[in-house]
Simulated scan of single mutants.
Amino acid sequence: MTTVDLHRPASAGEKLLRAILLPGARAIAVLRAYRNRRAVANLLSLDPHMLGDMGVTPHDVRSALASRITDDPSTHLASLAQERRAARTAQSRERQRRLSGDSPDQARPTN
């Protein structure tokens, strides 16, 4: 049986490749964040009801834009929308549970 050492030191070629590629990847990430920041800023021109249809509020948009300039505000905005959706779903399930007369101790198993 052959074993492979995954913790071997990087070769000179690997170090050179990393030195070339990492700054380029970082620059691409910063440019993508800048482009997404402009797109998120454009959301502020939308009506609050339209933003609500997307699952966010004007405050969420401003909060996402308040992050560091190199951070991508679209990921922050997406996580806020996902959290709000999860909370709304939990509230809906709780409301349904109360309407059906189930007590918290009699929670139905989910499939």
Rank of each mutant, 00 (worst) to 15 (best):
S74C: 01
A33Q: 00
E14K: 04
S45N: 07
A87G: 15
Y34H: 14
A27I: 03
D47G: 00
Q96S: 10
V40I: 15
A41N: 14
S92W: 07
L16F: 06
L43W: 00
N36Q: 09
R38P: 01
V61Y: 01
R8P: 00
I28N: 10
L22M: 11
D102R: 13
A29E: 15
G101H: 14
H76D: 13
G24Q: 15
S100I: 11
H76M: 12
G52N: 05
S79L: 09
R32F: 04
E94I: 07
R84Q: 09
T70A: 08
T57H: 01
L44K: 06
S100V: 12
E14T: 05
V4A: 00
P104M: 10
D102V: 12
R98Q: 15
R37D: 06
I20T: 12
P23N: 01
H7T: 14
A39G: 09
A12G: 13
R84K: 13
H49C: 05
G13S: 14
R62S: 03
L80K: 07
S45L: 07
R37V: 13
E83Y: 05
R8M: 07
R95N: 10
A12N: 10
R95K: 06
G55K: 08
T70G: 07
D60Y: 01
S79W: 06
A87P: 08
L17H: 07
A86W: 02
A39W: 02
A86K: 15
A19D: 11
R26K: 10
G24L: 15
H49E: 07
D72M: 05
T110R: 15
V61Q: 02
G24A: 11
L21H: 10
R85K: 11
R84P: 00
I69T: 15
P73G: 04
D71G: 02
A10R: 08
A39Y: 04
D47M: 00
R62Y: 03
D53C: 11
V56E: 02
A87I: 11
D47Q: 04
L43F: 00
E94V: 12
V4S: 02
E14M: 11
D5R: 08
G101I: 04
A39R: 05
A107V: 12
S74W: 06
V56C: 13
M1G: 15
S74M: 12
K15H: 13
G52I: 02
A25P: 05
R93K: 13
D60M: 07
T57N: 00
L44P: 00
K15T: 10
L46I: 08
T3G: 15
L21I: 13
R98Y: 07
A78Q: 03
T57M: 04
A29P: 03
P104Y: 14
L80E: 01
A10W: 05
E94N: 08
T70L: 09
L21F: 03
L99M: 09
P9T: 03
H7G: 11
D71Q: 12
M54S: 08
V40P: 07
D71R: 09
E94Q: 05
S11M: 10
N111L: 10
R35N: 12
S103R: 11
R18H: 08
L51I: 01
A10K: 14
R18F: 02
S103W: 09
A33T: 00
S103V: 11
S45A: 11
L22V: 15
L51G: 01
A66R: 09
L31Q: 10
R62V: 06
R68T: 08
